[in-house]
C-alpha cells in the first residue's frame, strides 16, 4: 500500500541511523551535580551521598545532556530529521516516554560516553496537542575507558504542530492549571443518515434496534447495507433485536480525548443474541471491568434534544 503520508515515508528513512555517535558527557559524574539533583527532587537517599555515593540511577540522561552550549556528538542525520519535521510545521516538541535500564551504577569521577540510534519515526498522528510525529531513540550510556555499559535509555518525543495555536493571551496573568469548563459542553457527533441506513435510525428514534433480513435467503445483516452479502438479494425486511447480547471484544479509550467524550471509556463490539455484531458503548460498569463475554442488554440513551443512541448496559449480576 502506498502511503499517502509522503513526509512520513521520507522520515522513515532515518530509522536505524545514528542520532549521536560517541557523544561525551560534558562533566564527569560528580557530587555537586548529584546534590543539586537530589535537592530539586527532594531525594534524601543516603546512597547518593558520601564517599561511596552513586549517582541517582534516574539521572542517567542528565549526564548526557548538552545544556545551554548544545549537544556534542549529535549526528547530521538527527539534525536533518528534526529539520524536516520543523519544515513540516512540527516545530514544538514534548517528551512522552522514557524507559531506562540501569546496568552499572555511575560514581563520581566516571566519564560518560553515549551512542544514540533513531529507533523509529511514527506516521503522522493527531494528538490533543496537535498533529505530529513520534520519534523514538535508544541511547547506550557507557562509562570509562573500557566503555562498560552503564545503562540504556529509550526516549520518545512528539514533534508537533501546535493545534489551533491559541491567540496570544491578552495579558500575563498567573493562572491556575488549565481546566476545561467555561465553554458550552461539546455535543456528540451526529449520525450520518443516508438512504441505506435511514430505516435503522428511524428505528432507533422509536427505541427499536432493527436488524436487516434478506427477503430472498433470510440471512440477517448488520450494519445496514443495500444488498445481501450471502446471496446478493436487494430486498429486505427487518427483525427487531431482543436487546440481549454479550461483549465480543472491546478496547478502552484513554487518549486522545475527543470533544463530548470523557476518557477512559469502553468501546465494545457487542454480539447480539441474533448473531450480528455492532459497535457501541458499555455502560453501568467501570471501563476496566468490561470483559469479553460480559452479558449486556440494550438501552437507548439520550445525549441531547436530538440524539438518541443504542448503548448496552452490563447485566447487574455480572458486575460484582
Amino acid at each position: 500500500m502506498v502511503s499517502e503520508d509522503e513526509p512520513a515515508a521520507r522520515l522513515k528513512e532515518y530509522e536505524g541511523r545514528a542520532a549521536a555517535a560517541s557523544g561525551t558527557g560534558k562533566d564527569p559524574v560528580n557530587l555537586p551535580m548529584i546534590r543539586h539533583w537530589c535537592e530539586a527532587m527532594g531525594d534524601t537517599n543516603p546512597a547518593y551521598e558520601g564517599p561511596d555515593a552513586i549517582s541517582p540511577p534516574t539521572m542517567l540522561q542528565a549526564w548526557t545532556m548538552g545544556g545551554l552550549s548544545g549537544h556534542t556528538g549529535r549526528s547530521q542525520a538527527y539534525d536533518e530529521l528534526l529539520g524536516l519535521l520543523d519544515e513540516a510545521g512540527c516545530t514544538s516538541v514534548v517528551a512522552t516516554d522514557c524507559e531506562q535500564e540501569y546496568v552499572r551504577p555511575l560514581r563520581p569521577g566516571d566519564e560518560v560516553t553515549f551512542d544514540t540510534v533513531i529507533e523509529s519515526v511514527s506516521d503522522r498522528k493527531t494528538t490533543k496537542l496537535g498533529t505530529g510525529y513520534f520519534v523514538t531513540t535508544r541511547t547506550e550510556v557507557r562509562v570509562g575507558q573500557a566503555r562498560h555499559l552503564a545503562g540504556t535509555h529509550r526516549f520518545r518525543i512528539l514533534k508537533y504542530a501546535p493545534a489551533g495555536r491559541r491567540p496570544k493571551e491578552p495579558e500575563r496573568k498567573e493562572k491556575q492549571p488549565a481546566r476545561r469548563g467555561t465553554q458550552p459542553p461539546a455535543r456528540r457527533p451526529r449520525p450520518v443518515v443516508n438512504r441505506d441506513n435511514a430505516g435503522f435510525w428511524e428505528g432507533v428514534g422509536r427505541h427499536r434496534l432493527l436488524i436487516q433480513r434478506c427477503a430472498a435467503c433470510g440471512t440477517i445483516r448488520f450494519p445496514w447495507l443495500p444488498g445481501c452479502n450471502a446471496c446478493g438479494g436487494p430486498d429486505w425486511d427487518t427483525v427487531e433485536a431482543s436487546g440481549e447480547g454479550r461483549v465480543y471484544s472491546y478496547v478502552v479509550m484513554h487518549h486522545p480525548p475527543f470533544p463530548a467524550f470523557d476518557p477512559p471509556y469502553a468501546v465494545a463490539l457487542i454480539e447480539l443474541a441474533e448473531g450480528v455484531r455492532m459497535i457501541s458503548n458499555v455502560i453501568g460498569v467501570p471501563c476496566d471491568k468490561v470483559r469479553i463475554g460480559l452479558p449486556v442488554h440494550l438501552e437507548f440513551q439520550s445525549y441531547d434534544d436530538e440524539l438518541v443512541l443504542p448503548v448496552f448496559r452490563a447485566r447487574e449480576e455480572e458486575t460484582v
Binding site: 546512597a47 534516574t58 516516554d97
Partner: peptide, 26 residues
C-alpha cells in the same frame, strides 16, 4: 523520572537499587 525513582527508593530504603524505570507522560 527522578520523582518516580525517589518515590520507590523512599519506600524500599537506601539499599534498594533501581533496575529499570519506564514512564509515559499524560
Amino acid at each position: 523520572n527522578g520523582l518516580v525513582g525517589r518515590y520507590i527508593t523512599d519506600h524500599f530504603g537506601p539499599t534498594a537499587r533501581l533496575r529499570k524505570v519506564a514512564i509515559r507522560l499524560g
